[in-house]
């Protein structure tokens, strides 16, 4: 299962896309870049920017390595406060699976240039 409930009440159309991708990915723990791309587009890019460049007071993700990104997502999933925008990330990360985190970290670290 690539995606559980992601904690955001998104519109029907944008929720359906990652769910469909999840269904196709099966139950392995493999990294699923296609699903991660949808997760990023539907949930992350609104604040971090379409190129993960960081916008407004939301930090840049481009250029960060996978271990850093995965570590931060795990920290947020555990409900730990890191910085002033932590409540947003805790809400967004709380239902991510290990595979979601690994896939997102791999996708972001390999897709966007610093």
């Amino acid at each position: 299962m690539t995606i559980k409930s992601f904690g955001l009440a998104l519109g029907l159309a944008i929720v359906c896309m990652p769910l469909a991708a999840a269904a196709q990915s099966g139950g392995s723990d493999d990294i699923d870049l296609a699903s991660a791309a949808q997760l990023f587009k539907n949930n992350c890019s609104a604040c971090h920017g379409k190129k993960a460049q960081g916008v407004a007071s939301y930090p840049k993700l481009a250029g960060q390595d996978a271990a850093y990104l995965a570590g931060k997502l795990q920290t947020y999933r555990a409900g730990e406060m890191v910085g002033p925008n932590s409540v947003l990330m805790i809400q967004n990360a709380k239902d991510l699976s290990d595979q979601d985190i690994a896939s997102l970290a791999a996708y972001i670290s390999t897709t966007f240039e610093e």
Partner: peptide, 13 residues
């Protein structure tokens, strides 16, 4: 509308 994804709020950009 810039959009905020938090706690069940539709992002809404």
């Amino acid at each position: 509308i810039m959009g905020i994804g938090f706690g069940g709020t539709p992002i809404g950009q």
